[in-house]
Design a binder for these strands. Structure first.
Lengths: 246, 246
DNA sequence: CGGATGCTTGAGGTCTATCAAAGCGAGTGG
DNA sequence: CCACTCGCTTTGATAGACCTCAAGCATCCG
């Protein structure tokens, strides 16, 4: 069972802003957006929720249906069942959609936990529909955000279901690097926010296996690692691990 | 690599219908729908695509963004990469959304293949937006359809990542039974449309392991099985396999 | 009817989990 | 500020689950 999270801490809510002022706009809204559309987006009232490290996002506003997007920070989404097993489903970075399940089986529960101080942007579906009245492109973009979520899961399932441990770890490093890169960070110098346990769960392995595989990569000169700072030394080598085996 | 699919066969397109006439309406549209909303749904122009057994759904209409829902039949969705590995992501039954990935990595490809003659209902997102102008409930329902897709994948990832082979197979049988039941079929008498290979891929196992596990279940009196007809004899027993271990 | 595909079972090997123990680091309280 | 704790990390030894390879049989389809 997941260790106790500090549920007590307050979750201050910032003042309400229009999306047009948000620095994420290039990722969160479509690239082809025009000035007119941008002014529509201004009308998209978004609420920003601060989530301190270790806190969980509560499904408070579940009923009224919000689309939630990570603005800053790093989080993990976890599904757990009553007998104490849990599985990390995803790691969330800025511009990722946050999917809070609504009607889960009562034997399972779903959590989103901040691995560092984070800010979540929430947009009510109602408002999206209002904008959709005036602009179809913008509307289908928000569908697209959900499609990206589905796609990410498809790849995760591919990895979980068909890869061996070495391939999984290599895939994880490369994927994380790509996503960091998309957020303006280095693709090769990765700063882990998550524990080895989290990585193992995400990949469907045990943490010892993850550690042993990383150690193997170090000995083979593929990576450098100390604490939670990882440096990819041989990008091609890692890619070949995934693609060239069998 | 997935065996050759008959890509040549024609995919006749039926005459255009409004959703209000569709027998799936109770599943596909929200349960709280009113007569007024129903008449809006009538205006939702849907195109029905016939997909013969063995055929693949082509991403022909990708660009213009369609929401696709299975009306009748049974299909599988598969992701495969260039070195010949593939992974069954999901099995699709009536009322399930069909997610055709748009921008996949060029090293991967994505297929939806009919395991029996099927009919797919396609609704352009544009039209959904039009209806959304008039009714917010209906609009958020279509978001909800995508959310259900995400949820299904969350559970699959839980199974792929944290279960042992026996649990996976039990989970698969129970889940399939539940979904059959939701479509008006028996929860206990399952008629497999997919091969043992498909099941194995879906669960991240080898087909021999699936067969051995099923054989074990037979010897333990949990199920009866011949060919692709499976009968669940001890529902509780299967449920306990998943929940009570450890 | 014959070939191809799918299903089943066995034997043996490999990979990953399990169990155990020690080192390290961040955070806490004295 | 230091000692202490607790959780995270790492490595080793062992066990067991699942895969791999192989062979025979059943079934489907042209």
């Amino acid at each position: 069972m997941y260790k106790e999270i500090n549920k007590e801490r307050s979750k201050p809510i910032e003042k309400i802003n229009g999306c047009g002022k948000c620095s994420l706009i290039k990722k969160c809204l479509p690239s082809f957006i025009t000035t007119e559309q941008l002014s529509l987006a201004e009308g998209l009232i978004s609420q920003k929720i601060k989530v301190p490290r270790g806190d969980e996002i509560k499904p408070i506003d579940q009923g009224s249906q919000f689309l939630k997007i990570v603005q800053t920070g790093f989080l993990k989404s976890v599904i757990s069942n009553k007998d104490g097993r849990d599985q990390v489903l995803d790691f969330l970075m800025p511009s990722d959609a946050v999917h809070l399940s609504k009607d889960l089986d009562h034997r399972y529960s779903f959590h989103i936990i901040a691995l560092e101080d984070s800010v979540i942007c929430t947009v009510p579906f109602d408002k999206i529909a209002d904008v959709a009245i005036l602009d179809h492109d913008l509307s289908s973009h928000f569908y697209e955000v959900l499609n990206i979520e589905i796609n990410r899961r498809n790849f995760s399932m591919f990895s979980l279901g068909s890869m061996k441990s070495e391939e999984k770890v290599a895939y994880f490093l490369l994927d994380l690097g790509t996503r960091f890169h998309q957020n303006g960070f280095s693709q090769l110098n990765l700063n882990f926010k998550m524990s080895r346990y989290d990585i193992a769960s995400y990949l469907g392995l045990k943490h010892e296996t993850v550690i042993r595989t990383l150690s193997k990569f170090i000995h083979e000169g593929l990576i450098e690692l100390n604490h939670r700072e990882l440096k990819i030394l041989n990008l091609l080598g890692l890619q070949q691990l995934i693609n060239n085996i069998h």
